[in-house]
Amino acid sequence: MTLLCRMLNLRVTYHRQASAALDLSALDITAGERLAVIGESGSGKTTLARALAGLLPETARCEGEIRWTSEMPPQPGRDLGFVFQDPSSSLNPVLTVGEQVAEGARQHLNLSWSQAFRHARDLVASVGIPDPDSALNAYPHQFSGGQRQRIAIAAALSARPSILVADEITSALDMVVQAQLVALLDELVRQAAMTLIFVTHDIALASGLADRLVILKDGRLVECGATAQVLERPQSDYTRALIASHRTLSSRSLLPGSAE
């Protein structure tokens, strides 16, 4: 197992905020692993994802260090792809799908536009968009929310990054589409042996995809470990409560008199 990066005493404080949004003493990421970052609203998941990607707002203060084992920190768009919760923040509404998906490849893989478009066509097909040839010439608003997220994934993968950061990419979608997207992500990450940072508030969703879980609360790391270990033997009360309050299809009904 090769170390990809090590975070040490990482503290992120947003402009004019009294307390830090993220305060981690230590966290390692291994190359090629699938790491899920889990926590409730405001726990610092997006802050961690953005800090890793070098995408924090300029006004945020970042102390401590993120030590990459590569010579240079990964460059977003080239070495690291990022997909947001809301596809409208990943996609530009006035550019065609083809232009957006081809862009990363043209810039970073030294492809001509026509080569980059062929590459884009393959990517758009690989994320399961029907009729990829005509999709290239269409605009984002012509697709459903789930399809737009697929296109955002294709755009993030354009330059063949080795790291993919996915921040709540299914939260705005219905569960059937969510399940399809997670299966897609699983396959793409496996094929390209990418490192995946998967941010979600849904511990069950994470459990189906991740090798390792990081649990955050109020900006601090509560627990971190292999998925099975965290689920079977959670070390903290908080993680136990999080697992207990998660509803699945076999959870008891709350209705009185419903014997299960």
């Binding site: 399940a179 459990s207 689920l231 079977e232 697992i243 299809l249």
Partner: peptide, 22 residues
């Protein structure tokens, strides 16, 4: 939930994430 009869119900049931220990 336990015996969905329509395709729509079946795919909704299948889509609910399970807490899986792999």
């Amino acid at each position: 939930i336990e015996r969905p009869r329509s395709d729509a119900a079946r795919s909704l049931v299948a889509a609910v994430p399970r807490l899986v220990i792999r």
